[in-house]
């Protein structure tokens, strides 16, 4: 009886939600037209990248800041035990990881470059590179990271994308308003920011995995 009431209530609530979404009022401003009108000034030809990096670049700046903050929180709160020594995993797994990694890096670079004119971009490229690092870790080729013993180069890569983005924003703020790129340099600036973001995002996303990892990779 109780179960029947719960199922009925869930169905009614689901129906109400579907109804609310189907009857959504059309937005008073059609943003698609506004985006299409300004594509020529954006420096890229893919509307999603134009919105993420140019028209709403502020959101992307805050997004990378939030991810970095999450990682710093994890480093501060995470376990302080040194990661156990890496034991070699299955030979077949290692061979496969070694073969797979170079094409994955190329795919990451392609996604970054393709973001200017077709689906792709820094986030996807960073995630693909992070996946390669996770794969290397799970096959025992890349040891887990220790928050206290992190080399300077890795720290620089972790914060580099955000710092680069922030520096460009501040420089643009001096020239006019925040993140308003001059139309002629917009393409170059977006590519520069996205390259920095790709490396940082790859390190941050992989870091979420590698700082937490307590096991020694794929070793049994």
């Amino acid at each position: 009886m109780k179960r029947a009431i719960v199922i009925a209530a869930a169905l009614v609530f689901g129906g109400l939600l579907i109804n609310a979404i189907v009857d959504l009022p059309s937005s008073p401003v059609d943003l698609r037209i506004a985006v299409a009108d300004n594509m020529a000034n954006s420096g890229v030809s893919h509307p999603v990248t134009a919105v993420l990096l140019n028209f709403r670049g502020y959101d992307t700046l805050l997004e990378i800041a939030v991810l970095l903050l999450a990682l710093i929180g994890l480093m501060a709160a995470g376990p302080m035990l040194p990661p156990p020594p890496n034991q070699p995993a299955d030979a077949l797994l290692q061979k496969l990881a070694r073969i797979a990694t170079p094409p994955v890096i190329v795919v990451g670079g392609y996604l970054l470059w393709a973001g200017a004119f077709r689906p792709g971009g820094a986030f996807q490229a960073g995630a693909v590179l992070a996946a390669a690092m996770v794969l290397l870790h799970l096959s025992g080729l890349l040891s887990a990271w220790n928050a206290q013993l992190l080399p300077l180069a890795r720290r620089v890569i972790l914060v580099g994308g955000f710092v680069l983005f922030l520096c460009i924003s501040v420089a643009l703020l001096a020239a006019g308003s925040l993140l308003q790129y001059p139309p002629h340099q917009a393409g170059l600036l977006i590519l520069l920011i996205e390259s920095g973001l790709t490396l940082s995002l790859a390190a941050i996303l992989a870091g979420l995995f590698l700082f937490l990892s307590r096991d020694n990779g794929g070793a049994p």
Binding site: P119, F123, Q124, A127
Partner: peptide
Amino acid sequence: DIALAEAA
């Protein structure tokens, strides 16, 4: 775009 992000 969302499909790529979801997959990765």
